[in-house]
Design a protein around this nucleic acid. Structure first.
Lengths: 306, 306
DNA sequence: AGAATAGTGTCTTTTAGACAGTATAGG
DNA sequence: CCTATACTGTCTAAAAGACACTATTCT
């Protein structure tokens, strides 16, 4: 009794630590990534999530979501971007805040931990890029990118998140094969077959899946799983992967085109062995991937659908 | 240049403070509350929000959302409940996490501040209750409930949020008229005519209004603005207040009953001067108000509607 | 020609909305 | 009686879903 009270009084003077964790989705892992070795029973398209194996207590050796504490001068969304980049070696095509977790039980005997969760999308466009490392990690090849939990970036002037994303993408240096092989503690798992997760990260994944599967969400972001142009059949496959059930091609076509967000590029597929399909691009999305940044990270499409 | 760098280095060693702020909605302020004295142009039903005037820098004298920092051993939702109770003297009928705000610019020269925003509902059921004060504030009448920002509660054993809510409601002592009159710095404002707000609280209110007005939200919580039983006309008025436009009574009736969440109590209104209306109650909501607590604070209704 | 997928037409069912008309209390 | 609101019926338009049918490319 006296004992626990003393330890409680010590905890009392530790301010809560604030961390960011991210659930990233992709239709398939990047080429160089480690994948869950267990067999997949059905060949249906599933969603993949990158996880990081913890190398220190608590939960040492257990898989966890990419993330880390927020440095004193880094915006929340930038912490999510930086820690995702450390695990995936690429910037995501979409990023949005999900929920904040701060129950006092989640790390009972340690410092109070408040986790702000994000969810992200990696599309074919992003995964096709050559994996890159931030310049600081490249100058410190011994540590690689697995040293995530106590490695704040130097101060930077305020920028818009679009600028930050651009900078991160263009300034990043190429990763050597050695650096990539050092990622023993990063692997991709099927969202349906996740291993045991540290902390309450299983709850976070469940919340992210629920959010992704709400119609107003995925109708606006499904195209981000694909490249800059895509056929309606490809887009339909994404919807089927998210929903987990087949979708009628004819009705899907009408509904997708009725949204007014798809622009016919005039190009078509070739060499498919059958009738070629028209290629579309998403409305007002010519090049730069959009990353939700601030408190009002709702897109105009989402607002309209409410 | 040297100067700002030095102050920046000091900030660097201050961990971010974590605070909670809440946007609470009600169809009308409680009887004893101070109200915005400005005239309301139209007599349409509007939503009301309680605000607290800051008594110290930054933003001294400016209205702000109820809230405060999280004590080391208090769950996020409990901080929201406690600070709401300090301002409104009642527990809300509904409470759900909204969004987390943590941009580094929001309190430029001070300690980094991460704010986790909640939104709440006060229904007729809650507002009809006699206002109460927590026991600690009652023992300290000189400070009243306005001393919110540095006044953590003593440690408590973990409880479910339902238990906590129950305890808070039953243990609270009655507030004297003096204590209530001391609430000079708490007032209710129409959501359409808010004063200038401290920090980025205007963004938080905008986000809360957007969330409340999304159909999947208000269809599940509109009934919480009312008492335990209500007529369809009353429920329709709530929808009209949220939407800001009239709703056809006949079509609203069909849609509301088709949801299957309304149970006919068998009772009817009397003394109305016209045909009496049936009284309904919400499905599986006999007594206890439900307060969203943990990471998965989504109701089953919301999950189904996705 | 045949295979395979792209794309169109059309029918049915469901849902949202407008609005006339009936029912029942109190004055 | 009249008034006011509760409640029902019905028509129309829009949307969602099922599914037959045509179109076009490659082998």
């Amino acid at each position: 009794m006296e004992f626990s009270r003393a330890s409680a009084n010590e905890r009392r003077f530790l301010p809560p630590a604030v961390a960011v964790s991210s659930v990233a989705f992709a239709l398939s892992p990047p080429a160089e990534a480690r994948k869950d070795s267990r067999e997949l029973v059905d060949t249906a398209v599933t969603l993949w999530i990158p996880l990081v194996r913890r190398t220190r207590p608590p939960f040492e050796g257990i898989w966890a979501l990419p993330g880390g504490p927020i440095p004193w001068d880094e915006a929340l969304v930038d912490t999510a971007l930086r820690t995702l980049h450390a695990a995936v070696h690429r910037a995501p095509g979409y990023l949005e805040q999900l929920y904040s977790f701060g129950s006092i039980e989640r790390s009972a005997q340690a410092q109070r931990l408040v986790t702000i969760a994000y969810w992200a999308l990696y599309g074919e466009r992003e995964l096709a890029q050559v994996p890159s490392l931030p310049e600081r990690a490249a100058a410190n090849p011994g540590h690689g990118s697995t040293r995530r939990w106590d490695d704040p970036e130097p101060p930077q002037p305020p920028q818009t998140s679009a600028e930050r994303l651009q900078q991160r993408t263009t300034q990043a240096t190429l990763a050597s094969v050695d650096s990539l092989d050092a990622d023993r503690n990063v692997a991709w798992f099927s969202a349906d077959r996740l291993p045991e997760l540290a902390f309450d990260h299983a709850d976070i994944v469940a919340t992210a899946l629920w959010r992704l599967r709400s119609k107003t969400e995925y109708s606006a972001v499904a195209h981000r799983f694909l490249g800059p142009t895509f056929t309606l059949a490809q887009l339909r496959v994404v919807h089927e992967a998210i929903l987990g059930e087949p979708v009628d091609p004819a009705n899907f076509r009408r509904q997708a085109l009725a949204q007014g967000n798809l622009i016919d590029t005039g190009d078509t597929t070739t060499g498919t062995g059958h009738r070629p399909a028209r290629l579309y691009r998403f409305r007002s999305d010519p090049e730069a991937p959009e990353v939700g940044a601030g408190p009002l990270a709702f897109t105009s499409e989402q607002r309209k659908s409410a």
